[in-house]
Nucleic acid binder design. Structure first.
Lengths: 153, 153
DNA sequence: CCATTTAGTTGGTGGCACGTACTAATTTAG
DNA sequence: CTAAATTAGTACGTGCCACCAACTAAATGG
């Protein structure tokens, strides 16, 4: 009855569960996980293709295709860089931004529903612990979790 | 400095982080996430193609291809069912079992490394909370998290 | 027995990711 | 100030993965 998963198993299972929720909600809008990640990253940035590849941890040739498909659907735009004639900036369109917001909202609702299985105090403790873990990890890897709050300087 | 993510953002970020670790470690053995999931599911089951589709939440035609590729690499076997001449049972080969174990071990090592960013007490609290969340969620959905411990009867 | 349902495969389509090879622009060296 | 090296991005070919629709064969049940 009171079976307990190992920490490793628990995190693995949880990640599949959360990804499943994300996938379902994204799928309702005909978006894949990677498209959602793309829109998410672009919410507070207008990176070059190259920076996008780093942010998404993809090969730059993968990003070409990804942005192609998103652009074909009117979710993002390619804008020539003003300072480097080789470079291309990628930015969200209004439609892309709207879709990203919708998806985020319904995903958030699902996750809140999931979290309601825990008493409020536990819920809060969990998110606090995960937050601390992520912040520590990000710091160690020189990643800025909050580009909108504290833009890279 | 002490920025705090929302519970929803925290879980989303964490799931991407954990999936990334899994993907990297699986990739070292030329396995994809779905192949790893396949091997994981087969560790304590020998389901039919159909049951496999339910377990992995895939279309049965997707499972055909998935098992094809795994079989071509000698990771799984197709065994005709003794009781239903239409049905096919899928089981791990020794090679598949070994690969799954290796992958699980190096993934576990990575996750433990990640968790070491938290003090031991927090680490334990986190895994306890996540465990409770998963158990509650599984119970609500009639999913058995522990088929090896308590086989479906 | 014949109609229906079920298990699994096949074939077609599209998304996604990679490596390689390429063009064009920029930077660096001499 | 050019020639070489680097960088940004794309094009193309390959393979994996997922779906749907159509199909065969076996089981089920009137």
């Amino acid at each position: 009855m009171e079976a307990r998963l190992s920490a490793v198993d628990a995190l693995a299972q949880l990640s599949f569960l959360v990804q499943g929720i994300l996938e379902r909600r994204a799928g309702e809008r005909d978006l894949s996980i990677i498209q959602i990640r793309l829109l998410g990253v672009l919410r507070d940035r207008t990176p070059t293709m190259n920076e996008l590849a780093r942010l998404l941890d993809l090969d730059k040739s993968s990003v070409t295709g990804l942005v192609d498909r998103a652009q074909r659907r009117g979710l993002v735009e390619r804008v020539p860089s003003a300072t480097d004639r080789r470079a291309v900036l990628v930015s969200l369109t209004d439609h892309g931004r709207a879709l990203a917001a919708e998806g985020a909202a319904s995903f958030a609702a699902d996750v809140r529903l999931l979290l309601e299985r825990l008493p409020p105090a536990d819920r809060d403790a969990l998110s606090e612990l995960v937050s601390r873990l992520l912040v520590a990890h990000a710091a160690d890897h020189g990643i800025d979790l909050f580009p909108a709050i504290r833009p890279a300087g």
